[in-house]
């Protein structure tokens, strides 16, 4: 066991942890984005709310989600440790700065990461925390209301969507004949409210910009750290890093607040 400890205490070991947690968070982004695409459905949040419930209640996903929280914490803590080490490695900085050719994102991973961490905290407080809030007492600060959807299973048409009066409900899906009724927490509404504020939208866009640059370097860098480089695949990894993680994913996420702000 001590050998493992030794391995992870080495500079390369710490970098390995950064790479693995980073890559895991990258895969989560794909899942998160594909789920969130349902925000673009014109269904009063039916699909989105179902998805939100699935993500928070399906047991295997819950296990993964704990891994995810852990990854975020470990990635941040190790980033901090490494940054402190790196500062110590150069106690006197250069008066003439550092003009060596290198990408801007590579040079600013720490700042970009810090922006992302602040974003994640706020993002989770506003959505994840509220969603998990089970205090239905009078003085509860904010409670996500429930909504009842009725859907025709034959035509697939949404028949009705009704806000339920404040109170305690449970997530439920039941079918009567061809009509499916779903009672679910209306996270969709929370999203709608949030994305109506311009500063909130701006904050999201900035954070997702940071995400783009963070992943522009981070994704391909993690492969280097893991030692997975080969001239045959380097190009592919680079392209995935740029197109999927630095362009498509941040753009997809950023589109949500922007579209909501502009259209709803």
């Amino acid at each position: 066991m001590s050998e493992f400890k030794q391995t992870f205490n080495s500079s390369l070991g710490k970098k390995l942890i950064m790479a693995l947690t980073g890559l895991f968070l990258c895969t989560f982004l794909i899942v998160h984005l594909s789920g969130n695409l349902s925000l673009f459905n014109h269904d009063h949040g039916y699909a989105f709310n179902a998805y939100a419930n699935f993500m928070t209640h399906f047991p295997p996903i819950r296990v993964v989600s704990y891994l995810l929280y852990l990854s975020i914490i470990v990635h941040s803590v190790y980033a901090l440790i490494l940054t402190i080490n790196n500062r110590k490695a150069r106690p006197v900085s250069y008066a003439s700065g550092n003009d060596s050719p290198q990408s801007w994102s590579a040079k600013n991973m720490g700042i970009l990461g810090s922006i992302l961490l602040v974003f994640i905290v706020i993002h989770m407080k506003d959505f994840w925390f509220k969603y998990h809030q089970e205090d239905f007492s009078e003085n509860a600060e904010y409670v996500i209301p429930y909504k009842e959807y009725k859907k025709d299973l034959v035509s697939g048409e949404l028949l009705s969507a009704r806000d339920l009066p404040p109170g305690k409900y449970n997530y439920a899906v039941f079918t009567e004949g061809n009509v499916e009724t779903m009672i679910a927490k209306d996270l969709y509404q929370t999203v709608e409210i949030a994305f109506k504020q311009w500063w909130y939208v701006l904050f999201y866009v900035v954070a997702l910009g940071a995400l783009s640059f963070h992943l522009l370097h981070g994704f391909q860098s993690s492969f280097r750290t893991l030692g997975w480089v080969h001239r045959r695949y380097n190009g592919i990894i680079y392209q995935i890093g740029v197109w999927l993680f630095a362009i498509i994913i941040p753009l997809g996420f950023a589109a949500m607040p922007v579209v909501y702000y502009l259209t709803r």
Binding site: S10, S11, L12, K14, K15, L82, N85, N86, K88, A89, R90, N98, S100, P101, Q102, S103, A106, K107, M109, H217, Q220, S221, R224, T225
Partner: peptide, 22 residues
Amino acid sequence: MVAQMDEEGFGNCTNTGACEAE
């Protein structure tokens, strides 16, 4: 060699590529 490198107090690599460029 990595153990000795760590002992000497060098920083950690973040693949910025400045080394390669210089």
